[in-house]
Nucleic acid binder design. Structure first.
Lengths: 136, 136
DNA sequence: GTCCTTGCAAAGCGTTTGCACAGAA
DNA sequence: TTCTGTGCAAACGCTTTGCAAGGAC
């Protein structure tokens, strides 16, 4: 049985304020790797007094707590996703959309890496997504 | 025999102005994935009238021409490197330094990627570098 | 003359900081 | 009262844009 988001926040020592619940809901129900502005614009409809600062505050808290991940893709702006089972990303070079794809493993024959301690492997595939290929 | 940087620029249709040669030299002789500010500060000693705008202009030209690559690692700021044989990167989570490492290949059994056309695979390893491990 | 390179100044955009107010404990 | 969550306003850092001056051709 799936835990409610409220419980999930509590389990991580985060007091479940309305704003925090809404941000987490949005991330979990809309797996589009939104940036701060998208989250703000969407939630602002429900929470008219919401400020961008608060969105930043909440996301920072979530990332520090480890329930949300900041995804680095292009440059300039941070994008966010709830932590799921491990997966990789595909970035479409035409429309810029970021897709979740099954985990791509590496052939880690880490020769030439003596002395380095590897904690994480990030794989990003780039190319053209199906919908951009059809527009041709 | 290795081509001079001047010839390399010419071959790519870039007229080899002093500024452009110096930027390319810097990138090729200092494989530290510098950001714009590092390049600017360094070259400003030799070229006192240099402006950051020009550094941006030159880098943009190089990236569009395909002789330099923009590396996306953390967020916020772009980092640059001359195009070498394919390799991967290792980012130290302690000191933030970015290392060139031998190419890490993926096990590309791209199931679940039907319809996607993959052009590039970016692998980034994260962990702790040898020098940060010793400081303990 | 025209085209290209350079660079100042300003604007733009994402993000962070300082501070203050209101509500909860 | 103290602590916590929120949010305005300003500052900040990286990047882009507009435009003009000087040099190359």
């Amino acid at each position: 049985m799936k835990k409610s988001h409220v419980e999930l926040l509590k389990d991580h020592g985060i007091s479940p304020s309305l704003t925090r619940i809404e941000v987490y809901n949005y991330l979990d129900y809309n797996r589009v790797h939104p940036n701060v502005d998208m989250i703000y614009k969407k939630l602002n409809k429900k929470l008219p007094t919401l400020s961008k600062t608060t969105v930043y505050n909440v996301l920072k808290l979530f990332v520090e707590t480890g329930i949300v991940k900041e995804v680095t893709v292009g440059s300039q702006e941070a994008r966010y996703e709830v932590i799921l089972e491990e997966h990789s990303h595909f970035k479409c070079e035409v429309c810029g959309k970021l897709y979740d794809i099954p985990l791509v493993k590496t052939e880690h024959n880490f020769s030439g890496l003596e002395g380095f301690s590897v904690n994480e492997e990030v794989v990003l595939l780039k190319g053209i997504c199906p919908s951009c290929q059809q527009k041709h």
